[in-house]
Design a protein around this nucleic acid. Sequence first.
DNA 1: TATTTAGGTCAATATATTTGACCTTTTGAC
DNA 2: GTCAAAAGGTCAAATATATTGACCTAAATA
Lengths: 143, 143
Amino acid sequence: MVDQKREESLREAIELIFFSYRSFTRGPDLILEKRGLNRMHHRILYFVGREPALSVNDLLSVLNISKQALHNPLRQLVAMKLVSNSKSRSDGRVKELRLTSAGKKLEARLTGTQLLQLAEVFGQAGPDAEKAWRKTMHFLAND
Amino acid sequence: MVDQKREESLREAIELIFFSYRSFTRGPDLILEKRGLNRMHHRILYFVGREPALSVNDLLSVLNISKQALHNPLRQLVAMKLVSNSKSRSDGRVKELRLTSAGKKLEARLTGTQLLQLAEVFGQAGPDAEKAWRKTMHFLAND
DNA sequence: TATTTAGGTCAATATATTTGACCTTTTGAC
DNA sequence: GTCAAAAGGTCAAATATATTGACCTAAATA
């Protein structure tokens, strides 16, 4: 009886994750759709913006997808002049990915909806809850 | 300067969500892959298991996808005898979806990895952090 | 009886993903 | 200087998925 109650409570947690993630991705998804882009484009813009001069290989590692799966969306972003790729000085094989100013603008708009949303959520939950949330998510993120 | 620091902290939160969600879905995804199923099949199994006699329309509502997008995975699950659909007694138009015993077994295996993972995470974080996490996620799930 | 609702299906299109091969340029070990 | 390895890019085929829009039945209900 105790175990079953705990399972019920853990299933509620599963649903919190499911519905939270959907809520969290809706903002950017709506903006992306209007431009014929998808969530992968946002992820590329996000991580390139997060670490300018990121290499293609490092981007692949963080996204955890195949080279072929990255190929198209990245090519599109470069063609749209949202991402630039220039040869690295220290290693001519490596390309350094960066956001162009247009790329920065779009990234700011996409991620901006999520920053706002999280600011609101943490505002409602309060700083102690935010801290505990971060601690818990840290455990979850690292297996 | 203050605002920029807060943005940095919120971006860390964004990344916690991204990596947490990936970690959270990996377990079921690996099991599903071996059977030629995907995350949508798990979602169907989950919500049907959660509410036996669920109608197709109600399933569509909770999943928030089109009838056509549901059609294939649901048909497959029924064909594999993991989900049963029987006419409702009270309204002959409505089908009541239920997990078969094989469906229950698979659902338990899939969701079981997530239950275990969350039990571990909450165990590490502690009951107070769990409570605060739930409160915060609740705000996030409801916009 | 006529309309609405729940459900199912089809076809066309568009997209995305995966597998696997193959190519160039550059680096670095020998 | 040669050669294997690394970084990156691309292609093609097969597969999978999603989207749009149409159309159908059976059952409920106004």
